[in-house]
Computed example of a mutant assay.
Amino acid sequence: MNHETTRSDGTRIHYTATGSTDGPALTLIHGWGCDRGDFDTIVKHLPPEVRVLAVDLAEHGDSRSSRDTWTIEEFAGDVAAVLAAESVESTVVAGHSLGGAVAVETARLLPDTVTRVIALDALHYLGLFPAQSEEDVQALLQPFREDFTGAMRGMVEAGSPEGTDPSLVDSYIKKMGSVRQPAGLHALEGLARWDMDAALREIAQPVVLFAVRSIIAKEAIDRYGDRIRIELVDLGSHHFPVESPAETAKILADEL
């Protein structure tokens, strides 16, 4: 069922709630420029007893906001608002791409509620993590300011291993390129400024990363392997949750 909750600043967060209210809770967070619909097929493959909450972050999907702050911490507040609205006392939080960062930050914000973090091809991109210098942030954003669609194409292609269906690549570019502005650009800036190292130091919950084998760099494994359990998968591109929903559902169910 589709629901909406409103934060104190007027931000309206839409989300979908399915499954048994008595079962283990799983909260799903989409990536940058995407929406909760990315999880629709995955949810159909999850055990019926699992309580699933799929969230549209502010200015993504159906959610709307006029706020001025677009940080990973503020996105975590969107998720926290949904958990409060649903009176969730315990949940595993899983996020794809930017959603993986939001999941970690939600764990820091709600240490007594979030029991585990699952990152789906997130957290290992060294061009974004750890927090970038001001010079690097501006260098990352400049191509998007000059030619958003072109820069988006480059980002999507970088996350698409050889053999990825070109029509899928085009569909991701079209979808992500339509993210509402200026929130879309501000969200990318917030991701580049997010201090993942600090967040990981401050959370006690286990974090597991399912990373596309052909994309993750050995340097990232060496840097974060002692803080994150890293599992390599061969399920498609950076957007493998969309491409391999049944297999992704099994990954999630096994971690509950």
Results as ranks from 00 to 15, higher is better:
K250C: 11
S20P: 07
R36Y: 10
S65G: 08
L209W: 01
P47R: 01
A183M: 00
E86C: 10
V114Q: 02
L26K: 06
G37Y: 13
E59S: 15
A76H: 05
A199H: 03
I173P: 01
Q138L: 14
G77Q: 10
G99A: 03
A17V: 09
D121M: 03
T71N: 00
A192Q: 00
A84M: 12
G19M: 10
D56R: 07
T41G: 06
V156D: 04
Q138T: 15
D62E: 14
G236N: 02
S133E: 00
N2Y: 14
V102Y: 11
D234G: 05
E243H: 02
I215D: 01
G23S: 05
D121N: 07
S237R: 03
E134I: 00
I173E: 05
E86L: 02
A199G: 03
D197G: 01
V156C: 06
L123T: 05
G95W: 04
L57Y: 06
A139R: 13
L26D: 08
F144M: 08
I173S: 00
E146Y: 07
I215T: 05
A84L: 09
V52R: 03
E74W: 00
F148Q: 05
K175C: 10
V92H: 01
L209P: 07
A211G: 00
E59K: 06
L120M: 07
H14Y: 14
T164C: 12
K174I: 15
A151C: 06
G190E: 00
I230V: 06
M152W: 02
L191C: 02
G95S: 09
L98H: 09
H239A: 15
D226S: 14
D22G: 15
A246M: 05
P182A: 01
I118R: 01
N2P: 11
Q132K: 11
K44R: 14
I118S: 00
R108I: 11
S63V: 07
I221D: 04
T18S: 08
A80S: 13
W70M: 07
A249G: 02
